[in-house]
Design a protein around this nucleic acid. Structure first.
Ligand SMILES: [Mn+2]
Ligand SMILES: [Mn+2]
Ligand SMILES: [Zn+2]
Ligand SMILES: [Zn+2]
Lengths: 160, 160
DNA sequence: CCTAATAATGATAATCATTATCAATATGCT
DNA sequence: AGCATATTGATAATGATTATCATTATTAGG
């Protein structure tokens, strides 16, 4: 019945009980919980889990795209001398924080509506683009090239 | 020549030598420096300054709007179970992180242009609105009311 | 100018989130 | 079972930020 595709189609890495509990804790929380808050919630159902595992699992889930992490923890707060309104790009690989040289314009009306919907008194706003910066892209490319030299593409071997 | 306005027009709190050095360090840095990086830069010209003062001055400058701080340090990283694209509102008073119930839409074209200008390979984006949340607004209002009871408005005394 | 009161400063300890270690445990395979 | 390997979690380490508090400027009189 199951696995008609055979072992070649390895699944994305099935979540074990701990990971499922963490995922459930994040999903069931209506606010945006911190890692420690999730830890406290998860221990209720998995009392033996440790804080290190919670952090590990959270990163793994985020990497798989099952959850999202807001606010880069692995970096210190950064300061900006440019006080005129502008937007930023953040590298998802190295964490670099770059100015966007061009404003991403969005209508004052939409902003006002959104602020009112959230119940906040709007002071300022910022658009954040996430992706891989040029430096990290080059580095990843170089590593890929090198890996090919050491261990040639197994798919290509079949064709040969 | 100076001070024709007299002492009544008290200026916003003139920056002393340390604060000026910090401000200059932030402004002259083209990337987005951390507090410790600023500390290292400032000690070159003000060798006796301590790290505590740098943090104090940075917060003060940010409060005066002379610089901007990116990435809330006083809070831990937060996780989000809603992986569909959406935006956030952040309270500048209490740090609360709220979902925007309505998407702030912006053109795919503008996003692509901005990403290309910054040299990143765009993966996702987010709009962040900063302001005072409803709870903090109410609290501030209540405190203002109470302050009036204790110390009546000095401006009103002149009129009387 | 001298002195007491007050505010600003900086060295250092404390805090807190996150990460690194590493021994213990679980899992898979023969 | 017996061995290799991967996962886990207790605990120590790290690193950024904040709190303390004694020391050092600054101010206001005299
Ligand atoms: Mn900037
Ligand atoms: Mn959210
Ligand atoms: Zn990068
Ligand atoms: Zn608030």
């Amino acid at each position: 019945m199951s696995g008609s595709g055979g072992p070649t189609a390895l699944m994305k890495e099935a979540l074990n009980a701990n990971a499922q509990a963490v995922l459930e804790a994040v999903r069931s929380s209506h606010n945006h919980p911190t890692a420690l808050e999730i830890y406290e919630a998860v221990r209720k159902v998995r009392p033996r889990i440790g804080v290190a595992s919670v952090y590990r699992i959270l990163h793994s889930l985020a990497q798989q795209g099952l959850i999202r992490e807001l606010g880069r923890s692995d970096e210190a707060c950064r300061y900006d001398g440019h006080i005129e309104r502008h937007d930023h790009a953040i590298c998802t690989t190295c964490g670099a924080l770059l100015d966007l040289p061009v404003d991403v314009r969005l209508s004052e009306e939409a902003l006002r509506m959104a602020a009112q919907a959230a119940g906040i008194e709007l002071h300022s706003h910022e658009v954040r683009l996430y992706g891989q910066c040029a430096a990290c892209r080059q580095k990843a490319q170089a590593e890929r090239e090198q890996a090919r030299q050491i261990a040639p593409d197994p798919g290509a071997a079949e064709a040969e």
